[in-house]
């Protein structure tokens, strides 16, 4: 499943499910880019380019998430079930 994390509080809830999911794909969108991803080590993590850049988070996030645009997000959403935590 794609865990769409749109804020810190809900992102923390999503993290607990994603940890149980061997196929978890985590997407950080909006304030989700502030999420502490330490508990998600080993999971595939993406972050939305524009949301990262606007928040000046590029340097902080580049080691833990792959930066993608909306185009790639659409592909993820149509190819996987979405778990909404926005």
């Amino acid at each position: 499943m794609v865990y769409l994390c749109g804020e810190k509080y809900l992102g923390q809830v999503a993290t607990q499910y994603a940890q149980m999911d061997p196929d978890a794909i985590v997407v950080l969108i909006k304030d989700g880019v502030y999420l502490d991803t330490t508990p998600l080590k080993g999971k595939k993590i993406f972050a939305i380019d524009e949301d990262v850049k606007r928040r000046g988070m590029g340097e902080r996030i580049k080691a833990k998430a792959e930066i993608i645009g909306y185009d790639a997000l659409v592909d993820l959403v149509v190819n996987n079930k979405v778990a909404n935590f926005t």
Binding site: V78, K81, V82
Partner: peptide
């Protein structure tokens, strides 16, 4: 009708 769902 939908294949996938996104909430905002």
């Amino acid at each position: 009708e939908s294949d996938t769902f996104v909430a905002l």
